[in-house]
């Protein structure tokens, strides 16, 4: 599978990193020359980067720089917007995930997503968490029960809701709802969880809880998080990628990607430094 995908990528003339073929199935992405266009509007171009497994990678940059768009390439949610073209090559654990190479439905069971605003389903807490497993065909009551407890524990929500799993999800607070959404994403046992500004609609205490949850999750899953909040990126991420769209006529580019500590103390690019020190954006 890996070699096939790599050979396919080579046949398309894309550079394939040599180490890619040795990566185990654990949630590492490799992006090569990725571009995205909405109709005629080219929003991202020439993004090449690796996203290592079991680490937190933060995507930062000013509004409209294509962070969320790039994130949606990783679970093919751009497909749902219509009129979106994605170019270049993206592999997950060496397997091509672009175009017809993979069914987005299969991909999304491996790559979960948590959205900007908490979006629990209008159902009980229990039914929310088992939505993904049920989609995968898991029906056994005991198995589902175990998944619910495990997922809610990982999302640091179990102690608060263990006595009220039959309660409607909308009765939870905003922060609890977002942790429920994290638990719901974890219940499908994904390799990766994408987070699109998961704390931007929450108060500081809930934000803190989400950040703690993220820190505890990275042993099990790869996390890619889009954030506007640079302190947040500095606090929780291992690697940071800075994107910038320098004018509306031009697509956004990846300016710099590297270890978070280095990015925030000694960035290579002057634009990264200006953004991080708050000179624009």
């Amino acid at each position: 599978m890996v070699t096939l995908a790599a050979a396919d990528a080579r046949a398309h003339g894309a550079p394939v990193a040599a180490e890619q073929e040795d990566l185990p199935a654990e949630g590492s992405f490799s992006l090569r020359d990725v571009s995205v266009a909405y109709g005629r509007d080219r929003v991202i171009e020439g993004v090449s980067m690796d996203i290592p497994p079991h680490a937190v990678t933060a995507l930062i940059g000013p509004s409209g720089c294509g962070k969320s768009t790039l994130l949606r390439c990783l679970n093919r949610m751009n497909d749902e917007l219509g009129n979106v073209r994605v170019g270049g090559h993206i592999t997950l654990d060496g397997q091509d995930i672009t175009g017809k190479a993979i069914d987005p439905v299969d991909l999304r069971m491996r790559v979960g997503q948590v959205f900007q605003r908490p979006n629990p389903f209008p159902m009980t807490i229990f039914d929310n968490v088992v939505y993904g497993p049920r989609t995968q065909g898991i029906r056994g009551r005991d198995e589902l029960q175990a998944l619910v407890e495990e997922s809610l524990r990982s999302a640091a929500l179990w102690e608060e809701v263990k006595k009220s799993l039959k309660k409607h999800a909308f009765e939870l607070s905003g922060g609890q709802q977002q942790r429920l959404c994290i638990a719901r994403a974890l219940a499908t046992k994904p390799e990766v969880i994408l987070m699109d500004e998961p704390a931007s609609a929450l108060d500081p205490i809930s934000t803190q809880q989400i950040e703690d949850t993220i820190a505890s999750l990275k042993d099990d899953v790869t996390i890619v998080i889009v954030t506007h909040n640079m302190q947040q990126a500095a606090r929780i991420s291992d690697r940071t990628a800075f994107m910038l769209r320098e004018s509306l006529e031009e697509p956004a580019h990846l300016i710099e990607v590297g270890e978070t500590r280095k990015m925030f103390t000694n960035p290579d690019d002057a634009r990264t430094e200006s953004y991080i020190t708050g000179r624009f954006g």
Binding site: E80, N119, P120, F121
Partner: peptide, 27 residues
């Protein structure tokens, strides 16, 4: 029905029909 809910369902690996049947239509 908020677009958020549709996205949440699709992002969990639901097919469009499953999303409609289990989330959109009941709501």
């Amino acid at each position: 029905i908020p677009q958020d809910l549709r996205q949440a369902s699709l992002a969990l690996g639901a097919t469009k029909f499953r999303m409609i049947r289990t989330v959109v239509l009941p709501a």
